[in-house]
Lab assay of single mutants.
Amino acid sequence: MRSPRTRGRSGRPLSLLLALLCALRAKVCGASGQFELEILSMQNVNGELQNGNCCGGARNPGDRKCTRDECDTYFKVCLKEYQSRVTAGGPCSFGSGSTPVIGGNTFNLKASRGNDRNRIVLPFSFAWPRSYTLLVEAWDSSNDTVQPDSIIEKASHSGMINPSRQWQTLKQNTGVAHFEYQIRVTCDDYYYGFGCNKFCRPRDDFFGHYACDQNGNKTCMEGWMGPECNRAICRQGCSPKHGSCKLPGDCRCQYGWQGLYCDKCIPHPGCVHGICNEPWQCLCETNWGGQLCDKDLNYCGTHQPCLNGGTCSNTGPDKYQCSCPEGYSGPNCEIA
């Protein structure tokens, strides 16, 4: 077999650049994923090309098998939009790539799955459409700058595939050579959905506090709520009108309100015997008056200043008058 000629994957630097851009600016990249293909086995019993010639040398006159050299087999892949009637021409609109030389006439790579040499990765940054057309071609490398490479066999497949970690196996069982391969579509990290176009990256910072479920939905951490999980859940009972919080379990009062639940107004400074319904009010309790509710309107009842059976009459805020019984006098009937 001729010395292998290595063929790198098509578009790999571009895919790395796209992945970097997506990581830095995830909101700009609407989708991100990759179409993967792995060659599993190849069977070319006679070492022939599609045109019937030998990959190298002439045929044995007896059994008609190619004798001089085995094929240097590598694969090309073209991925494009779905076609009900597949045409070989036209651009590979979803991507293209190739393997290096991975074997001779016949080989089996099932035991070495995950080997990069027999895998082609086609990254995409558009919403995966699920339906596709795939062209797979086996080629013989001439290892010659003058002699062109020659095609051994080709296969085409049109179908639908959803993103999954599971592989789907396909076979080419007609023509001079048979080969088996597997395909799958996977979303990149933080991308979800059938189109790999739903973005969700767990975070716990100013912009949100959430994890992501298997469908890419945000699940808020304990103590947080809202579409972006950036609204803290305040202390139970915290007034929704007069209290708020920036951290879970907190209850910060608005100006003019106080209390554990921010449901108590702050009265006017200096208010003595008054209450409030709104901040800075001083609504006097019964029998109290004045701007600060510090004037006693029922001095008689509060202090009972009249002595010796005198009768007390309220005459104004903090004022009274005693009517003394016979034989007593003085402001409080204290003089006998």
Rank of each mutant, 00 (worst) to 15 (best):
T6M: 15
R9W: 15
N46S: 02
S164G: 12
N118Y: 08
W167R: 00
N217I: 13
L49R: 03
G223D: 10
F107I: 06
G223A: 12
K154R: 13
P123A: 03
V136E: 00
S164T: 10
Y190H: 10
E36V: 09
I183T: 01
C220R: 02
G226S: 04
T286A: 03
E153Q: 04
C265F: 00
S84T: 02
M225K: 08
C212S: 04
I151S: 09
R252S: 06
W288G: 00
C29W: 07
A177P: 04
G290A: 05
F207Y: 07
N60Y: 15
C312R: 00
R119C: 07
K218R: 14
S41P: 03
P13S: 15
I151M: 11
C333G: 03
Y192H: 12
G223S: 01
Q43H: 02
N308S: 09
D296E: 00
F124I: 06
C196Y: 05
S313C: 13
A58V: 09
A19S: 13
T87K: 04
S150I: 13
P129L: 12
G52R: 06
K27Q: 10
A138T: 02
K218N: 12
N215Y: 05
Q172L: 15
G104R: 05
F124Y: 02
T73S: 05
Y261F: 03
S96T: 05
G237V: 02
G256D: 09
R117P: 13
P91T: 08
Q172R: 14
E228K: 07
D318E: 11
N162D: 12
R64C: 13
D116G: 09
H157D: 12
G90A: 15
G159V: 12
S125I: 08
N215S: 08
N215I: 08
F199Y: 04
C322S: 01
P325T: 10
E326A: 07
W288S: 00
E81V: 11
R113S: 02
L18P: 00
Y299S: 09
P331T: 07
A19G: 04
Q166L: 11
D318Y: 14
G175C: 12
K295Q: 12
R130K: 02
P129R: 10
D149Y: 12
Y210N: 05
N277D: 05
N44D: 02
A127G: 07
L24M: 08
D188G: 06
N217T: 13
G97V: 07
T219S: 08
R235P: 07
R5G: 13
F179C: 03
L17P: 00
V136L: 04
F35Y: 01
N51T: 03
L170V: 12
I151V: 13
Q83L: 12
S112R: 10
G11W: 15
A177S: 14
N277I: 01
N105T: 15
N108K: 06
A88D: 10
Q304R: 05
D213N: 05
G249S: 04
D296A: 04
G104D: 06
E228V: 11
P13A: 00
Q321K: 08
E70D: 14
P240T: 01
N308H: 08
R68L: 09
S142I: 05
P248Q: 06
T99S: 08
C300S: 00
G56S: 04
P4L: 14
N308Y: 15
C276Y: 03
C262S: 02
P163S: 11
L24Q: 03
N51I: 13
G89R: 11
F207L: 06
Y210S: 13
A138P: 00
N44K: 07
N51Y: 01
G33A: 01
C282F: 00
R68C: 12
Q214K: 04
T286N: 01
S3F: 15
M221T: 06
G327A: 06
H273N: 06
G327R: 09
L18V: 02
G114R: 14
C200R: 07
G30R: 02
G114A: 15
G11E: 14
T174P: 15
L37S: 01
S323P: 02
Y74S: 11
G290C: 02
P61A: 15
R5L: 14
Y74D: 02
Q83H: 13
G95C: 00
V185M: 06
P4R: 15
P227R: 09
D144G: 06
C245R: 09
Q83E: 15
L24R: 01
C284W: 01
E278V: 05
D116Y: 12
H268Q: 10
A23D: 01
P240H: 07
C293Y: 00
G249D: 04
P202H: 08
T133S: 02
E278G: 12
R231G: 14
C200F: 05
Q50E: 03
P269R: 11
Y328N: 09
I39N: 01
R117S: 08
A58P: 05
E81G: 15
P148T: 01
S84C: 15
G33R: 00
G309E: 09
Y255F: 05
V136M: 01
V121M: 04
C220F: 02
I183V: 10
W167G: 00
C229Y: 01
Q147E: 08
P13R: 01
N53K: 04
V28A: 01
N217Y: 14
N118K: 07
Y82F: 13
Y181C: 09
Q258K: 04
D188H: 05
A23S: 14
S158W: 12
G226V: 12
E153A: 10
S112G: 06
C324S: 04
H268D: 06
R231K: 09
C293G: 02
F126Y: 02
D263H: 06
T174S: 05
E137V: 04
P123L: 07
E180A: 14
K110R: 09
T67S: 14
